Amino acid sequence: MHGSITRRGLGALGAGLLAAPALPRRGAAAGTAADWPDRPVTLVVPFTPGGASDTLARQIGQHFPRFANGQPLVVENRSGAGGTVGGGYVAAQQPNGYTLLMADVGANAIGRELNPRLGFDPMTAFTPIIHLVNLPAVFFAHPDVPERTLPEVIASAKARPDSFSYASAGVGNGSHLFMALLCRRAGVSMIHVPYRSGSEIVTSVMRGETQLGFPSLSSALGALRAGSIRPIAMGNPEGSPALPGIPPVSRVLPGFDVAVWYGVAAPAGMAPDLAHRINEVFGRIAALPAVREAVFSTQAGQVVGGSSEDFARFLRREYDTWTPLIREGGIRTE
């Protein structure tokens, strides 16, 4: 979930996060870049099969041997607790490049804020490798909701607090935090109804159980095109060519910029040259036209790429954006 209110032009990352990948964990075989990989590499997806992160992992896996000495990428699903079950598993592995994590905001930025009893610190437990993709998010309504624009929704919510209800994919999920941020920025109050997935958000709004939702565009695109739900605004300023002509939230709430995101992370303590080698391999795969087209056609997403340091700075911005919202709102998953 990309949620930086000011995504570009923010300050450099504090020394602690950047320093963490440079020092090998005591007793761990740090691995070297020269011969990586010389055996299969496991990419742990901390969600169930068939979801956005799993689909992305398997799209990348199709091309992995071409850039990785012919070795396969083995996708292993370890779901639970908003991605932190899989995250905790990878955090406990050796930083030798053979167990990696499909990174997301829960396991790699805000998991401990949502659950203070989490057994690892997302901001120190990993070596950031690469920011792979952003998936745009869309704010939509049931077709019978009379308010057709974001200013109209905000005006009605101010006039009648808690008159709107919205569905999310669970407490602390991106679809929850996106709406919580919108409400805070707009100065309104709405009723939160948590479900378990993006598809359930769409179904809830379609049935009229709730009135609003703010999930990834990919989970809602079919229903939007069928007219079963009505788009109101896009979470990112650029919008998406998959759903053209929909105004961004930032037109009403300047600086608002959210998206679902995924990347790759390794256990903390990885040698910098190995982290660079792994970044290079995933970066070359992500740059393939076939991968870019697959990400867009299946998930309306955009490939990001960049260096390990870029991803580290992005993770810090995510933490700094969502932590105040979580703390002030008393949002907990424990």
Rank of each mutant, 00 (worst) to 15 (best):
T84R: 01
W322H: 15
A34Y: 09
D104F: 06
V133T: 09
A159R: 13
A157H: 12
S4I: 06
L325Q: 13
V45D: 04
G269R: 13
A223F: 04
N96A: 07
V295M: 15
Q94N: 02
N69H: 15
A92M: 07
A157R: 12
R26G: 12
Y262F: 15
I285T: 03
R26H: 14
V249K: 10
D35W: 14
G119V: 00
Y89I: 07
V202Y: 06
S240V: 15
P237A: 01
M1F: 10
E318C: 09
A57G: 12
G301Q: 05
G222D: 04
R292N: 11
E280A: 14
R160Q: 15
P146W: 01
M190D: 07
E280W: 10
H2K: 13
N173T: 01
P128I: 03
R196V: 10
P122V: 05
Q211D: 02
L221S: 02
M1D: 14
G222N: 05
D35K: 14
H142R: 03
Q299E: 01
H131Y: 09
P161C: 11
E152A: 08
A226Q: 04
G227Y: 03
E147T: 03
I326W: 15
N173M: 00
G97H: 04
D162N: 15
E209V: 15
M206G: 05
R225A: 00
A312K: 06
V85I: 07
A186G: 06
E334Y: 08
R230I: 01
F64E: 09
V249Y: 10
H131G: 11
A167S: 12
P161D: 09
V281I: 15
